[in-house]
């Protein structure tokens, strides 16, 4: 079982950084998501979760820290969260943390709450301070 790593990029499309750790089950997806093929992108991550559990992985901790995603990505993200819900229901320990900035101009918290309501999986909402010097 190998780690799954994608470096975030911002070119014609915006890809989030993905880091899925096969040894610890500690995973993160962060940054921006506007993708040419959003469903394929998040499907690959879901497949990794399945294989991780099949290989004996007992727990998954997923940190989600987005500052932008378009609606196509949000639908694909929801499908991925539902895969995690199914894994959770069949016995895997799953923790999902949703990070939202302060100030929250893009209403990232609201997006997280909507995902929580829709995917049927408990999601922890965690605030972080936005650095002033960053990009607008």
């Amino acid at each position: 079982m190998e780690d799954f790593i994608i470096a975030g990029s911002r070119d014609i499309y915006f890809s989030p950084s993905v880091n899925l750790n096969a040894a610890t089950g500690k995973c993160s997806i962060s940054g921006e998501s506007y993708l040419e093929e959003p469903y394929e992108f998040y499907k690959k991550i879901s497949v990794w979760f399945w294989e991780y559990v099949k290989a004996g992985g007992k727990n998954i901790v997923l940190d989600l820290k987005f500052n932008y995603f378009n609606t196509s990505s949000s639908r694909a993200l929801l499908e991925m969260l539902r895969v995690l819900r199914d894994l959770h229901h069949s016995g895997t320990e799953v923790t999902v943390n949703w990070y939202y900035p302060n100030p929250d101009d893009d209403e990232i918290l609201m997006e997280g709450e909507d995902f929580r309501d829709e995917c049927g999986l408990e999601i922890n909402m965690i605030e972080y301070e936005l650095e002033e010097s960053g990009e607008k």
């Binding site: 378009n70 609606t71 196509s72 639908r75």
Partner: peptide, 20 residues
Amino acid sequence: MKRRYRSAELDPDHKGGNIG
């Protein structure tokens, strides 16, 4: 409404999220 549309099945050839 967004949650309802996002949860609904889409045609396989539908490329967007239907919630734009």
